[in-house]
Computed example of a mutant assay.
Amino acid sequence: MPTSQRLSPDRVRAWQTQIGALDPIGDNSTRLFRRTGVDGLANYLPALEMVVDDPTEFDEVAYWRPLSDLLVYVLIRTPCTMRRDPALIAEYPSQYAIVGTQTFAGGGVLRQDGQELPYRHPNHLLVVNNNLPYEHTAYSVADLAGLWIPLELLGYDATVGQVELGPVVTDTPLARAAAAFIRNFAYDVAVRGADVDPDTELAAIDLVRAAVGQRRAADTFADLQNRPVFVREATRTLIEQNFRDPAFGAESIAKALHMSRRHLYRHFVDTDETPATMIATRRLERARELLSHWENAGLDAIAAASGFTSAATLRNRFRAEYEMTPNEYRRGAGGGHRQGESSSTDPEGGVR
């Protein structure tokens, strides 16, 4: 006979000891639920669909406590899939985001808004918009602790159709700090009956907002990295800021944009320029400006101020681009352009 997957009394007792259920710190009442087997699934929250391989083996122990702004929960549950489809959302609309973390090593996957976000380790933070269809599958026994937070307190409007908050699975340092705070907060509040003041509720909400904001910013940047217009504009900005540094090159740009040199160059395949030619062009433009206005400056000083490693490099690059030496250009600029006389060069330094 196969071994039962239900939660044994010893496992539940060990878990309750871990979360402090045997050591209350306040007199506030909490709600304790035990949902087991087919009957437990039949009496689950109607707004959620629970799917398990063997309904007779389903088992969950949960603590639950409503606060002024939040709903706080702590639970242990056998492997399952929790689902919200459009029909359930239409029948049971929600204005909450569900935030969760766990301490048991294990894994699962969160699917929402066309994204599939797997996780395989503890101490991360999951955030799911309960007003959009989603599916969350846990592959092993999970000990979850977290919050139901009104979407508006996270800066989103739940009254409009598609709320911007998408699924979040993050394990950044900030998210790990938020997860630790939320886990201990949930233990004390939902399990041990602690008193809670409004400032502490707001601190928990602010931590989640910060972690979600950090993740959204990272996702936005990752998305922008795949857009040629963004990469080209970022490249121009970096060149303008750094071209005077002789060590600055295409590798520097790729590193600043967190991509390989090859990936960087892919964003320029349909243009007539590359990051390297853009850097060279900007240095030559600067040298030409200085040659026109620094009448007494030597070529070494102009080369250094323009990002060239030496006067010889400037001279060779200048001749290759404009078919004249820097000194020939300077004589033309000083004797022709600045005095209003004719010159063999056009305003951009080219040959007529």
Rank of each mutant, 00 (worst) to 15 (best):
P2L: 11
Y322T: 01
M1K: 05
A218N: 05
D23F: 06
W148D: 12
Y187I: 00
L125C: 10
D197L: 12
N123R: 14
D69G: 01
G335V: 03
A204H: 08
H263S: 15
Y63M: 03
R236K: 12
G161N: 11
P275E: 04
F268Y: 06
L238F: 08
Y63T: 02
S94D: 14
W294L: 13
G340L: 13
Q5A: 14
M278F: 02
L151K: 03
T36W: 10
T172F: 02
T271M: 08
R227F: 07
Y156F: 15
G349Q: 01
A210P: 02
L41H: 11
G20F: 04
R319H: 14
L153I: 00
S140N: 15
A21W: 11
A62D: 00
A175E: 08
E164G: 15
G335L: 12
K255I: 02
P2I: 10
A14E: 13
F268V: 06
A204Q: 10
E251S: 15
L290N: 01
G166I: 03
Q225V: 01
D113W: 08
V109K: 05
G146F: 04
T3S: 11
P66E: 14
S8L: 14
V231R: 09
A97L: 06
D188L: 13
F104T: 08
D270V: 06
R315Q: 13
L70W: 02
S343H: 06
P46F: 05
L88H: 14
G335C: 05
E323N: 13
F221K: 07
G249W: 02
V51G: 01
A312T: 15
L126P: 00
G106S: 07
T274Q: 07
A256Y: 03
F181L: 12
G161M: 06
A179F: 07
A180C: 07
L284N: 09
L75T: 04
P198E: 12
V189G: 03
T17Q: 12
A62R: 15
R286A: 02
T3C: 01
A301K: 15
D188V: 00
E328C: 02
G335A: 10
A105H: 12
T172N: 04
D171P: 00
S310H: 08
M278Q: 14
T200W: 03
R262W: 05
G334K: 11
Y329I: 00
L132R: 15
A186N: 07
R192C: 09
E295W: 11
E321D: 04
L314D: 02
Y265E: 14
P275F: 03
S343G: 15
T271W: 01
Q225F: 01
M1F: 10
L110F: 10
R315W: 01
L314M: 11
Q95T: 13
T159S: 15
V109I: 15
N130H: 11
H337M: 05
G100S: 12
M82Q: 12
Y265V: 07
G108S: 11
T137A: 14
H136S: 11
A178S: 15
S342V: 04
D270N: 10
L153M: 14
I182M: 13
S94K: 03
G166V: 08
T103S: 13
D272T: 09
I253H: 09
I253R: 07
W15L: 01
I302M: 02
N327I: 09
V269C: 00
A256V: 04
Q241A: 15
Q16W: 08
T277E: 13
M82N: 09
P133I: 12
A247F: 04
G37E: 06
M82W: 00
R77L: 11
